[in-house]
Amino acid sequence: MSLKDSKMEKKLDTPLTSRLLVICVDRDNDVGDKAGVLTPVVGRDSCIGAAQKLALQDPEDADANSIFFAIKTYEDLVSKGYQAEVIVVAGVGDRGVQADEKIIREVKSVLSSFSANGAVIVSDGEDDESVIPIIQNVVPIVSVQRCVMKVSRSVEYSYAVFGKYLKMIAYDSKYSKFFLGVPGILLLIGGIGTISGYTQEIFAVLVSILGGAFLIRAFDVDRAWANWSKPTPAGLIRMFTMVTGVIIGLASILSGFSAIHTNILDPQVIGTGVPNILSDRVTFGQFIAGAIPFLWIGMGAIFGGILLSNWLKGSLRQITDVLRMIVLVSLYPTVYQFTNLLINDESSFTLIPPFLAGLAITLISATFLFRKYRKKKGGEVLSE
């Protein structure tokens, strides 16, 4: 074998990454909420202590096993000659954007003291692995290890697991509200309808309730409302401005009808056909002209409440909230001119000046806001 081939073989055998960071991800922060451990947890001994605390608090939690799996992975890497470190990072209980932001901050803080050129991700499921693309923006990921629990497949164990889930459905309010509450309401209404003889009407009500329950659960309406109505200053402001904005928005419909010169509620007018009246260009323009002031005020109240709420929380989203308000104001002249075009039969070219002015204001404001943000935050890019 030539000297050149020997060097090539030695180069191929040399690992591409000599400093590896083993990252155990706990996106829902069980290690913090259950065991009271502050993250990031750095080092083998500290990780063992965190895993032991979590296992003592909740022996059935898979995150404790994931931490031990990460420690074993770390020891294997060290035995193979790698310079490695093991850490545990955690998000927040509600997961979502805040959890991902917290995880990436913790990874960056560890990398500032341990300069790794590769990472090994250890998780116990797909939820924790959803942060992989985010971590990969900070440090290259060379491997992903999933910790899968070995469980008994006996019939007794299956019955035990099934009984455990039945107990959760019966006694855990998080699940019983949907799995027991909704069927209970349907059965109660169905029984009352059968006794009273209103079978068809009750059936329609049952279908509506069931459909509404499915929609609420499918789109997380209950969780969204719970977050919006939390008894905090930010939550109360959001709830107040949302309700106020919706009421003002509904009032815009009445304002639009009152702006129409023809009394559209007159029985004689209704007899001629409301769709024909609304299809008239002038009438439609009068309706829009009367509605948009209240509609814009309602939307402004909602957007302003979101802005004030994020400002109180110190959230970075206040930048986009300010821009949203600017866009709303910039659009008003264009929409108003559109109503003049419908009512007064003006030229369509009259829409161009307010459109260009609004576009210029939006672009200038966006440039100024994001430059100011980057200057304060060291060049980071704001993302939703």
Rank of each mutant, 00 (worst) to 15 (best):
residue 67 I to Y: 03
residue 189 I to L: 15
residue 184 G to S: 11
residue 276 N to R: 02
residue 44 R to S: 03
residue 71 I to E: 13
residue 186 L to W: 00
residue 282 V to Q: 09
residue 37 V to G: 10
residue 355 F to L: 10
residue 136 Q to T: 06
residue 136 Q to M: 07
residue 118 G to V: 06
residue 103 I to D: 02
residue 373 Y to P: 05
residue 193 G to C: 11
residue 333 P to C: 11
residue 330 S to T: 06
residue 12 L to V: 01
residue 135 I to M: 10
residue 221 V to H: 09
residue 245 G to L: 06
residue 291 A to V: 01
residue 109 S to Q: 12
residue 81 G to P: 10
residue 114 F to T: 01
residue 156 E to R: 03
residue 73 T to R: 06
residue 231 P to W: 00
residue 207 V to Q: 13
residue 90 A to R: 06
residue 72 K to I: 00
residue 189 I to V: 12
residue 352 I to R: 04
residue 109 S to T: 12
residue 155 V to C: 08
residue 281 R to D: 09
residue 349 F to Q: 11
residue 268 Q to W: 00
residue 213 A to I: 05
residue 330 S to G: 14
residue 153 R to T: 03
residue 377 K to L: 04
residue 288 I to P: 12
residue 180 L to G: 11
residue 242 M to I: 08
residue 138 V to T: 10
residue 157 Y to R: 10
residue 269 V to N: 05
residue 7 K to F: 05
residue 310 N to R: 12
residue 113 S to K: 08
residue 3 L to M: 04
residue 161 V to E: 13
residue 313 K to Y: 04
residue 260 I to T: 01
residue 217 R to E: 15
residue 297 I to W: 01
residue 162 F to H: 01
residue 88 V to Y: 08
residue 3 L to E: 06
residue 273 G to D: 00
residue 53 K to Q: 08
residue 280 D to F: 04
residue 6 S to G: 13
residue 172 D to K: 14
residue 71 I to T: 12
residue 146 R to E: 03
residue 45 D to V: 06
residue 122 V to P: 02
residue 376 K to R: 09
residue 27 R to D: 02
residue 25 V to D: 08
residue 124 D to E: 02
residue 220 D to T: 02
residue 265 L to I: 01
residue 354 P to M: 06
residue 206 L to G: 14
residue 319 I to M: 14
residue 210 L to H: 04
residue 350 T to V: 14
residue 260 I to Q: 01
residue 353 P to E: 03
residue 68 F to P: 08
residue 65 N to E: 11
residue 181 G to I: 05
residue 265 L to G: 05
residue 236 L to R: 14
residue 296 W to S: 10
residue 349 F to T: 09
residue 214 F to T: 11
residue 107 V to A: 14
residue 297 I to C: 12
residue 106 E to G: 08
residue 355 F to A: 08
residue 343 I to F: 02
residue 347 S to I: 04
residue 29 N to M: 09
residue 227 N to A: 09
residue 126 E to H: 08
residue 234 A to L: 04
residue 120 V to W: 00
residue 59 P to Y: 02
residue 173 S to G: 13
residue 321 D to M: 12
residue 103 I to Q: 04
residue 197 G to M: 07
residue 184 G to R: 06
residue 54 L to F: 03
residue 226 A to I: 01
residue 92 V to Y: 03
residue 212 G to F: 02
residue 119 A to Q: 04
residue 199 T to W: 07
residue 280 D to G: 12
residue 254 L to A: 15
residue 213 A to F: 05
residue 102 K to C: 11
residue 1 M to T: 05
residue 135 I to F: 03
residue 324 R to T: 14
residue 80 K to H: 13
residue 145 Q to L: 14
residue 189 I to E: 03
residue 188 L to A: 12
residue 227 N to L: 10
residue 355 F to N: 05
residue 76 D to K: 08
residue 27 R to E: 04
